[in-house]
Simulated assay, not measured.
Amino acid sequence: MFWKIVGGLLIAWIAFMVIGSLVGFLVKAVFWIALIAGAAFLGTAAYGAIKGGGNKKQINS
């Protein structure tokens, strides 16, 4: 009975270790993807602001 409890605890510990490492990897991957996407967005916005500055359209009312 003692070894069944120890084995169950060992399997639960290994499962938590595997799940924790997968979640940690996914959080890091999402962080880097968001960081790269944010940099690309800011670069595109800056480029549009610089290039499109002379083409202003006005609505006549």
Rank of each mutant, 00 (worst) to 15 (best):
I36V: 10
G7T: 05
G53E: 13
L42S: 02
F2P: 01
F31A: 04
A40C: 05
A12T: 00
G8Q: 01
A34S: 02
G54S: 14
S61G: 10
W3I: 15
L35D: 09
G43Y: 01
V23S: 01
G24E: 03
F31W: 06
A40I: 11
I33C: 03
I36A: 02
Q58K: 14
W3Q: 15
W3V: 14
L35N: 01
K57N: 13
G43P: 03
G8M: 00
L22T: 08
L35Y: 09
G52C: 04
V30L: 11
A40F: 08
Y47V: 10
A40R: 04
G43A: 08
I19H: 04
L26V: 08
I59S: 09
W3G: 08
I33R: 02
I14C: 01
K4M: 14
A37D: 02
G20I: 02
G43S: 06
I5G: 03
F16M: 13
A39I: 11
A37M: 04
S61Y: 13
L35H: 06
I59Y: 10
G52R: 04
I59H: 04
Q58R: 13
A15R: 06
F2H: 11
A15S: 12
G38M: 06
A37S: 05
G53K: 13
G54C: 07
G24L: 05
I19L: 13
F25D: 09
L35F: 09
N60Y: 11
W32K: 07
W32C: 00
V23L: 06
L10I: 10
L10Y: 05
F2M: 14
A39Q: 02
W13N: 08
V6S: 11
I5Y: 08
V30A: 07
A40S: 06
G24P: 01
